[in-house]
Design a protein around this nucleic acid. Structure first.
Lengths: 214, 214
DNA sequence: TCATCACTACCTGTAAACCGGTAGTGACGG
DNA sequence: CCGTCACTACCGGTTTACAGGTAGTGATGA
């Protein structure tokens, strides 16, 4: 019986190449692919894949949100998180929303095949980076390590605008709130994501695909 | 006669997948691949590839620097810039240091094959995004659009440290210069790259691979 | 019902960023 | 020989950011 795979990555070239790689395995069938996070859930309803290879950073909904919806709506569909070196930090997020495996693109294609095999047998598969992240999270379980999107909607709005270079006053005007409130949001944001200063906020925002560097 | 290709990208999985894609073409041979910018020039001396498919963002030297060195040392070696959606801004930089083609990973593998074909016949190949960038650069040739590395060495050092969240005083201590001097550098940097504030500097630094988001 | 939390808003400070100017040095090229 | 420029350094001043506190609201969930 052939495993049905869905590829989700915003780089079409990567999808094509991955498709070529995976189709050499005769027990795998790619039933669909997309580069847009908004399409994935619908595509899964249509094609009922066994496994979704999901990039984390995508236009539309990001991989974490998609995974959350997917494991909720279609629990039998397994998700393998494919991350670039820049979003290894999301290990815990992806796993907490229901991903079954985590593989970084910096590793070999064999790793992905292993992950597919493991996931198809209802097991989890974590690359060394992910394993480290888990261990780290379990050991320094202090207050709030680098928890998921503990940020509120308003905080995310402020975060984006700060990263885009606006001052608190400009942000306040844009959101029709008081500058003092914006400052409170800033402090809460920095505390929650444990960074310091505008530079840290900007790195976080870019890292999480909340803004683009252009 | 078979074209010799060298693959340079920091994601091994992407390299493997690309290798599979390209090796289906019987007039192409992948002679080497690497994920580290520092190794590329040496590998080219060893393997004398006709074409280098080069990612822009890489550990070690970035694609722009490597291309500069490569076209200088081995002018017969053609460079195809492979960019992610986040570094399309580098079109002009890559072309100005001697890249022959520019393809984003968001496009199809066919595009890459077309580029290889074009480059092998001593032509250039630019994806639509790159074409737009060229046109834009030619039209609004105002003062200094987003000029290359007009930044001095010291300014780049300061730029990095600012983007990492250090204050001027901390930077000054690190570089053994006066804080006032650091502030001058900051202002000159912002003027040269036409950004505002720490957020702008941080975005620029990440965008240009001068720092990593972790 | 009561605790929690996001969101709102204010206060007082200190530190840092930002803006403008001037100016000396050494290196490099016309 | 002189202009340019990177790098160094200082001055003044204004604006923001940052850290700490308090406090009211409404929604949500135990």
């Amino acid at each position: 019986m052939s495993l049905k795979i869905l590829l989700a990555d915003d780089h079409q070239m990567f999808r094509e190449a991955l498709r070529t790689l995976l189709e050499r395995e005769d027990n795998l069938t790619i039933v669909a692919e997309t580069g847009n996070g908004n399409e994935i859930v619908a595509l899964c309803h249509q094609t009922q894949p066994d496994i979704v290879c999901m990039d984390i950073a995508m236009p539309g909904l990001n991989g974490i949100e998609v995974t959350r919806q997917l494991t909720d709506a279609l629990p039998s569909t397994k998700v393998i998180a494919l991350s670039t070196f820049t979003d290894r930090m999301y290990v815990l997020d992806m796993l907490s929303v229901g991903a079954s495996a985590f593989v970084t693109k910096a590793e070999t294609g064999i790793e992905l095949l292993r992950a597919i095999d493991a996931v198809s047998r209802n097991r989890s598969y974590l690359c060394p980076d992910a394993t480290d992240a888990i261990k780290g999270a379990l050991s320094d379980r202090s207050p709030a390590p680098a928890s998921p999107n503990k940020l509120g909607n308003r905080e995310i709005q402020v975060l984006k605008l700060v990263a885009e270079g606006l001052t608190s006053v400009q942000i306040a005007e844009k959101l029709n709130i008081m500058p003092s409130t914006v400052e409170v949001h800033r402090r809460n944001i920095m505390r929650k994501i444990t960074v310091k200063g505008v530079a840290g906020i900007t790195r976080y925002a870019l890292h999480n695909g909340l803004i683009t560097s252009l």
